[in-house]
Every structure is written in structure tokens, then in C-alpha cells.
Design a protein around this nucleic acid. Structure first.
Lengths: 144, 144
DNA sequence: GTATGTGCAAATCATTTGCATTCTC
DNA sequence: GAGAATGCAAATGATTTGCACATAC
């Protein structure tokens, strides 16, 4: 299995773009952790490791990471998007509390079949899915 | 079946809040169409009908509409959230093109079962779900 | 060498907030 | 009459853009 960086280099070459140390640093940092991330948090992580990467460089890289299939939007919360890897890590879905924001991850293998069915029916090249179940967690459902 | 306004009035009363003509106007406009909506577009729709409703009033109402179960976030796109009704209309999921933004709606009844299973397993009060399948539409997949 | 990428500072756009006024209960 | 809600204008915060400089191919 190719590494994320290899996938990215290939993608960049195919698009006729250029790779840079900044981009490799960002990708390395994203894949160093298995967690979700958002731009600001990623920026601070890089900063704390003394890597001088600007936020615009992160923002400018994200569309390419999405297009290359390395990451995917996970959910929108607290006024900004959160992303997750979809290469090399088990895909998962989210159960989210509408009150406190608590997130529980779970797997649902059946959705892969739904993807395939849709791909065929609508002639889409399906790259993944986002499945969120929304409700109130045990603590919060007591108060509403 | 109760109307949306009735549901909302009941919700407001239960919460000890106050209903206003502005709120009723907004809700009426939201449910006058079966489409998704976003704040700006809703604001313009109201404006074009000579209803003087300010954007902050819409923004301040949305959390209550979400909490009362009348609407739900549909997807985040073009820098802002889009909402959809979940009361009185058939729930649907979205197949979205990552390149051009084209959206196809589809139904997937099995997800209701997933909801029930999760509600039991994690002791959540489940209110709904959001299922998006992402990929490239027939036109766009040719170019990438 | 050329076009792309970078960092910075400034601009943009969605959303939120402070506040004086108005309205609901 | 007290507490909520409204509209406005200003503030906030995420994201984008313009631009001069650096660098990958």
C-alpha cells in the first residue's frame, strides 16, 4: 500500500502542479494522528513543532487533499469544518449530540453497498460518504 | 397531523419563550417551499415579499427550529449551512458532486434501523440523520 | 525561465453581539 | 411590568485574496 505522501506526489504530478516541503510537512502532520482535525488546530500543532507554515497554505492545500481522496469533510461544527482521513484508516460514522456536541464513532458496513448501488444508478464515481446520526446523549436528553 | 406553526407554538410555550409575528412569518416562508434553504436565500425571499425581517432574527430562530425538530442541517456548502424540513416531508439523503456541487436526492429506508440500533446501544434520543454520498457526477468524472 | 507556491496583511463573508426600542405574556 | 425579541450597526472569526518574493520543475 502506498503512503499518503506517495499518493499526493502522484496526484500533484498528474495535475501538473508542484510539490513543496510545506505541503509535505502539512500532510505528514495530518497523518501523524488518527483524529479528526480542523485548520486552526492543525496550524497550532505545526506551530508547536516549530514548523513555519501559514494558514493560507493549509487552506490552499485542502482542496487538493479532498480531490486526491486523502481526506474528507467530517462535519461542520463550531463555525468551521472538521476533516478526517479516508486513506489508510478505517472509515467511520458519527453519532452526535445536538446539545453538547459529544461525538461517538461507529461503523456501518452496509453503507458501502448503498454507495455501489448509487454509483451504478446515477453513473457517479463515488469517493465516499458522510453519515451522521443526530440526537441527544444520555446526559442531555434528560434536560430538554 | 399538526401544522408546523402549531408544533412551533407548542415548543415555544413549553420553553417559556415568546412567539412573535416575525417568527411565524419566517416559519411560514420556510414551509411554503419544499426545497432546501439557507439563511441568505430565505432572507431575500422574505424581502422580495416585502416582509421586513432582519437576518439576525433568522439566525436567532434557527436553533429553536432545530431543537423543535422542524428543520435539520442538510449540508455545508459555499461557505454556509443549508437546511431542510424534517417535519411533514419525506426524509431524503443526498448524493453530491465534489466538483460541480450537483445534488441528487434519494431515499434509504434502512438508515432508520441503524438509528434505532444506535439509540439503544448508546442510550441516545435520536432525532434524525444526515447521509451524504460524495463523488463525481457523470460530467465531472470525465475531466478529473 | 516561467509559472506556481509561500507568507503577510488586508479584504470578504457568514454569523454573532451590544444596545436601544418594541412587544409578548 | 418584566423579560424576550427585534433591528440596526458594529464586532467576530473563518476563509480568501492581492501582492511581492521565493522556489520547483
Amino acid at each position: 500500500m502506498k503512503s499518503e505522501i506517495e499518493i499526493f506526489r502522484e496526484f500533484i504530478r498528474k495535475k501538473g502542479l508542484r510539490n513543496t516541503p510545506e505541503r509535505e510537512t502539512i500532510i505528514e502532520e495530518i497523518f501523524a494522528s488518527h483524529d479528526h482535525f480542523d485548520v486552526d488546530e492543525l496550524y497550532l500543532r505545526l506551530k508547536s513543532k516549530k514548523k513555519k507554515i501559514s494558514k493560507p497554505s493549509i487552506y490552499r492545500l485542502i482542496p487538493y487533499l479532498l480531490e486526491s481522496g486523502l481526506i474528507q469533510e467530517a462535519y461542520f461544527e463550531d463555525g468551521h469544518l472538521h476533516y478526517e482521513h479516508i486513506y489508510g484508516h478505517e472509515h467511520h460514522c458519527h453519532l452526535r449530540c445536538l446539545n453538547c456536541g459529544k461525538i461517538i464513532e461507529f461503523e456501518e458496513k452496509y453503507l458501502k453497498k448503498v454507495e455501489n448501488r448509487l454509483a451504478e444508478k446515477y453513473d457517479f464515481l463515488v469517493k465516499g460518504h458522510k453519515f451522521e446520526v443526530l440526537g441527544y446523549c444520555p446526559k442531555c436528553k434528560a434536560h430538554i
